[in-house]
Amino acid sequence: MSLLSISASPHVHGDNSVKKIMWGVVIAMVPAMLVSIYYFGLDAVRVTLIAVAASIFFEWFFQKYLIKGADTYMDGSAVITGVLLAFNVPSNLPWWIIVIGALVAIGIGKMSFGGLGKNVFNPALVGRVFLLISFPVQMTSWPKISPITNGIADAITGPTPLGIVKEGLDAGLTVDQVMAQVPSFMQQFIGGIGGSLGEVSALALLLGGFCLLRRKIITWEIPLSILLTVVIFSGIFWLIDPTHYVNPLFHLLTGGMMLGAIFMATDMVSSPMSRNGQLVYGVGIGLLTVTIRTWGAYPEGMSFAILLMNSVTPLLNKAFKPKRFGRK
């Protein structure tokens, strides 16, 4: 018999593990991935594979040669970053831009803070925003939607619904005139709107969201507070002046709203810990997103909103403590 071991209680551990959580997130992203393959064909596969492979490589490289820490490249977090980065770029992006995106996401977004668990910002978003600012043309030339059943995706590019609306409103058109040019709400919900890989179908993203909620990987606070805030905040303006402000449903279903609310803002590392903090965090993201979309220079504000709220997460953790037992 070997020596008895001694340790303090508890002597059992639950079946939670970092790997399980990370791969759980990856599984939840599968529906959205399938939809994007359906619409963008092999290009979607190409972009995703390059992004994931590059993320894993950089994770391995930085851990081994710079941080000199444990092997974390297969814990699933780099895969998530890769897939999320792919979800946030157009399907016709050249491979080298994707690799640069992964380098920035992993290298600057994550490893410069010390690796998993220490990053302040969501790494995939850091990569995405870097690309958006550095390669604005490539990052905003989305290929026209063309389901795989119609043959190979063509090379024609077109703007996203958000882009159309932004340009239209800036040009002085009314909402009704602009809305005539974009797909219907039903189409936006099920899929088939132009945009980045992960943005095409709100339905598929919601499906993934339910999967995450069921497996208790995320809590309902963040996604729900973001979506509700967006609806209420944009709804107020829409009710006041429907000719100049778009329908809240449009905000909800287009662009990176669902992707951001379900997969990006809920990133454990960069979101607050307590439920109250998460609510405030979600409200903040909702307000900022609508603000940037409506009055900002960019048609889409989700990434910026999340990154901005990421930066106040430590403060939210300080300010919003959980309900203590036996204390007022």
Binding site: L4, S5, S7, H11, V12, H13, N16, V18, I21, A70, D75, S77, G115, L116, G117, K118, T219, M268, V269, P272, M273, S274, R275, K321, P322, K323, R324, F325, G326, R327
Partner: peptide, 25 residues
């Protein structure tokens, strides 16, 4: 079963906060 598993870094998932019956962090 007796040995404790390998320790990883905190990923700030907040599961401990959720599990604490006294509402601590």
């Amino acid at each position: 079963d007796a040995k404790r598993g390998e320790v990883n870094t905190c990923i700030r998932c907040g599961k401990c906060v959720e599990a604490c019956p006294m509402g601590l962090e």
